[in-house]
Simulated scan of single mutants.
Amino acid sequence: MINQNDISKETMWEATITCDSAYDGLFFYAVKTTGIFCRPSCKSKVPNSENVSFFGDAANAQKAGYRPCKRCRPDLKSKTYDPFGSIIEDTMQIIEKNYEQKMSFDEIATKVGVSRFHLNRLFKDRTGYTPLMYLEKIRINKAKDLLLSTTLNSTEIGYQIGYQSISSFYNAFKRHTGLTPSQFQANYVEKASY
């Protein structure tokens, strides 16, 4: 296993200025002028090299009087830290637990504590969906379950899963399945009878 003593100062400096996550957990860097220490992958402003010290672990950086960075959280025991993972997870949980309610994108962003622009970009980068696309996906999956497991009609299902208009529900359902709700139901019944 590589430790900090096996890595040259030049390599550590290069990893620091390029925010190379491959070195996370192998060393930490501290900045004398701020009194803060970080992981190599931290996206904070690049410090002047003469103000930087390197440490093999977080405990030694703290013993030397440095505080952990609030952005990259080098004090956490995990090798890497994803500050946005909890935002994605929280957004998904909010949508999954409240899909049947009328929800605005602003409300979701406020609940997870970021701007709507930041949430939209971050969520799309990580999941391939915008939060509203994800909401629609959850609703349509629930509609498919209800179509196959209840005697509710399409209109009742559309309202139950949170659509304010039936045409919005039908359009979303067709976008996701290529079928209308009744065609989807008929296809399933036809396949089940074979």
Rank of each mutant, 00 (worst) to 15 (best):
G128D: 03
R71C: 01
I161V: 09
E14S: 13
K174P: 05
E10F: 10
C72F: 08
Q185E: 12
S21V: 12
L146R: 03
E190A: 12
N153E: 12
S165E: 04
P74K: 00
L26S: 07
I161P: 02
S182F: 09
T151Y: 14
Q62W: 02
A30D: 03
K9F: 06
Y159V: 04
T16C: 03
T155D: 13
S115Y: 11
N187M: 13
T33L: 00
L179N: 10
T127Q: 01
T110E: 15
E190T: 13
C19N: 15
T34R: 02
M92C: 14
I2Q: 11
K43R: 15
Q160Y: 07
Y23T: 08
I140H: 00
L26E: 06
A172M: 06
L152G: 05
Q101A: 14
R73F: 08
H176L: 10
F55W: 03
C42H: 09
S104P: 00
S53E: 12
F84S: 09
I138K: 10
I17D: 05
N171R: 15
K79R: 13
Q185N: 10
S41H: 00
N171C: 03
I17G: 02
Y23H: 08
Y163V: 06
Y163I: 05
F123G: 01
Q4R: 10
D125Y: 11
E107L: 15
N5M: 06
D24T: 03
L179P: 05
K79C: 00
N48E: 07
R71E: 06
N3D: 13
L148I: 01
A172V: 06
R73T: 07
G113M: 11
C72L: 04
Y170D: 11
L132G: 07
A22F: 15
H118K: 11
F117I: 14
E89I: 05
K174T: 12
L179E: 14
N187T: 12
N51W: 04
L152W: 08
Y170V: 13
K191G: 05
T155A: 13
Q93V: 14
K102A: 10
P131W: 04
N153P: 09
K32D: 06
F84G: 08
I157W: 03
V114E: 06
D125H: 12
K191L: 11
S49F: 14
W13H: 06
K97N: 08
S78Q: 15
K97Q: 07
H118M: 11
K77E: 15
R71N: 08
T18M: 03
N141W: 05
F27G: 01
S53C: 11
V31W: 02
N98C: 05
K124R: 12
P83K: 13
E156D: 05
A22S: 15
F117D: 09
Y170E: 11
T33G: 00
P40I: 02
A64T: 08
T110C: 07
S154D: 07
G65P: 09
V114N: 04
A172R: 05
E10C: 08
Q164C: 01
Y194V: 14
K137S: 11
G128I: 04
K43E: 12
A59V: 13
S53Y: 04
D75V: 04
F173S: 02
G25Q: 06
S154I: 03
E156F: 01
I2S: 11
F173Q: 00
T80S: 12
K137Y: 14
D24P: 03
T33W: 00
E156V: 01
G85T: 00
Q62P: 07
T16H: 05
